[in-house]
């Protein structure tokens, strides 16, 4: 899923300063699962904004809408009947959703209420961790399911660097060394000899280095 963090409340309040009628958007997908922008979090942020504005004596009207997805046109279209009744849209969806709503409604500014951070997994309830960077050229077959692009701070492909100490990355003592994990996994599966295979130079042109990416399936186009 796409994981995000809510922006600091003060930043949100400052962004909203010029507006009094606010459409607060949530998303029922990734940001609901990582508990940052689903219907519940939308209700909490709306309540916080109302409390702050009430304390300051500045009127505010907030409509809370949580779309099934903010990244598909059919759901974004459902905002059409009422989005123009509001001064601004504040979105708790990921960066994709925020942009997509803004692209559809050109006469409305869509503000971000979250900082979109990474593609990750739920390690335990309330703990999310990064697993993928969408590099466009997956190597998980060669590393037995541990991504060196994402989980190694340097994205190394042929073993750890000198900063790997006791299985921990020098960048952050909480982060396991990805290459230690990969070697442990090779041993676990009885294929340690695969560690000796030299990995070829990776094609980064299919990653972000090649600019924004687009995927087209002609057979699905209507």
């Amino acid at each position: 899923m796409i994981v995000a963090d809510r922006k600091p409340f003060q930043e949100i309040i400052e962004m909203l300063a010029p507006y009094s009628r606010i459409l607060l958007l949530g998303c029922n997908e990734c940001v609901t699962v990582c508990a940052v922008g689903g219907a519940k979090e939308v209700a909490v942020l709306a309540s916080e904004i109302r409390l702050r504005r009430a304390k300051e004596g500045i009127p505010v009207e907030i409509k809370e809408v949580t779309l099934e997805r903010n990244c598909d046109p059919e759901y974004v279209e459902t905002l059409q009947p009422f989005i123009n009744d509001f001064d601004v849209a504040l979105s708790m969806a990921c960066g994709c959703g925020i942009q997509f709503v803004g692209e559809r409604y050109r006469n409305r500014i869509v503000l971000p209420a979250v900082n979109t951070t990474f593609y990750g997994v739920t390690e335990q309830h309330g703990v999310w961790a990064e697993r993928c960077q969408g590099c466009g050229n997956c190597v998980l077959d060669r590393t037995l399911g541990i991504c060196p692009v994402t989980r190694c701070a340097k994205s190394l492909f042929n073993g750890p660097c000198g900063g790997s100490q006791g299985g921990v990355c020098e960048v952050n003592k909480e982060t396991p060394c990805a290459w230690q994990l990969i070697v442990d996994r090779y041993k676990e599966m009885g294929v340690l000899d695969r560690y000796l295979e030299i990995q070829p130079v990776k094609d980064w042109s299919v990653s972000r280095d090649g600019g924004p990416r687009k995927r087209i399936r002609e057979d699905l186009k209507i």
């Binding site: 003060q10 916080e48 409390l51 304390k55 300051e56």
Partner: peptide, 8 residues
Amino acid sequence: QLLEESGI
């Protein structure tokens, strides 16, 4: 925390 942020 939320109450502190919102000024309550």
